[in-house]
Design a protein around this nucleic acid. Structure first.
Lengths: 189, 189
DNA sequence: TAGTTTTCCTAAAGGTATGAGGCAAATGTA
DNA sequence: TACATTTGCCTCATACCTTTAGGAAAACTA
């Protein structure tokens, strides 16, 4: 019997594509096994279990996102950088909804620390260099930006804005204007 | 055989409590049947299927949340109202993590329209009466507020802010200060 | 009290996850 | 090239969750 050439890496990538195609919660070892024309139990040689696959996809997504983000903010500053970073998240979520959903799974602290999560925080902080914020306001602002990016994308994709008089693209750019204005005029404690 | 007194309503409430206790994704018909000491198949007399239970919990959560929100904003205006509404979401999510997770499930349009979703949008809009915004900026602002509330709560509960130098309570109140300032100084298009 | 409806049951089939143990293909060694 | 070892995938077995179909007993209704 010819070998399918399974690899942890190939499985996780295939899982990510599957997630984008059918939704992250539909990603199952069975579906993956079907795709490779292999018995489900065979996957256990490469993956600890179903959870392992899911965190693998999550870490992959975080990595890809961080790579894109690093590209986007390089050589930009101020509102330019803010917009670029924000668009990275939004575009990625639209292009890869399954991966984006995966990136939201709760990871245990060590896994999270080992992953690309810290890179994200660092890049958001880098953007704030173009604005005049000192600690602890900088941290507050990092968290606010993270909340807006994540919250907006989630609601937009979940259909929360669907009954849409002004289209969401318009709201998105006005939101970025607003955030820029806010960061330039951060209220004192 | 004594009857268990099953009801669609009781089942959904029990499901909501179960969700808060063990997590929304662990809510299963089997677990619910065990709790009522009843065969799983018996539940199908009251629930269409597993999905039906989940959307039921989601609608319940949206309803409860809207009730609390309505209470909170009544008789308040401006930043006072903004803070009260924001705290409703955050507190509810902390008190009822399973229900809050349920409230995020994607509902098909008719179900969503029949539910309390519209009340939420209306209340957010009501808050903006205390600020000087006209359409379409008002809609943009509604969406921004929704994004921040939802995004912040999700990230906070998901441990995204865990490595916490300034504690999250501090960030939360500074975030509300910032939003208030932003709404008072909304940048022109 | 007889009939109807409602509520719960048993039985059965199908999908997913996971573990134990086995054969065969690929790779290393003489 | 022959043999040994490792590794990749398989079969078998178990267990849980979901869903459908049909039956019996309780509760309501007339």
């Amino acid at each position: 019997m010819a070998r399918a050439g399974l690899t942890r890496d190939r499985l996780i990538r295939a899982g990510a594509e599957l997630a984008d195609r059918v939704g992250f919660d539909q990603v199952t070892l069975s579906a993956l096994a079907r795709q490779f024309e292999v018995q489900v139990a065979s996957l256990y040689a490469h993956l600890k279990n179903s959870q392992d696959l899911k965190t693998g996809i999550a870490l992959l997504a975080l990595e890809e996102l961080a790579d894109r983000a690093a590209d986007a903010v390089a050589g930009r500053a101020g509102k330019d950088a803010l917009t670029a970073l924000a668009n990275v998240y939004r575009d990625y979520a639209h292009e890869h909804p399954g991966r984006y959903a995966a990136a939201q799974v709760r990871l245990d602290p060590e896994t999270a620390a080992a992953g690309a999560g810290v890179r994200h925080a660092r890049m958001t902080r880098a953007i704030l260099r173009g604005y005049d914020l000192t600690e602890p306001d900088q941290t507050h602002a990092v968290r606010l930006l993270g909340s807006v990016f994540h919250g907006y994308v989630t609601l937009e994709m979940g259909g929360g804005f669907s009954h849409s008089a002004p289209d969401t693209q318009e709201t998105w750019s006005r939101t970025l204007d607003a955030l820029d204005a806010l960061l330039r005029n951060w209220p004192p404690a």
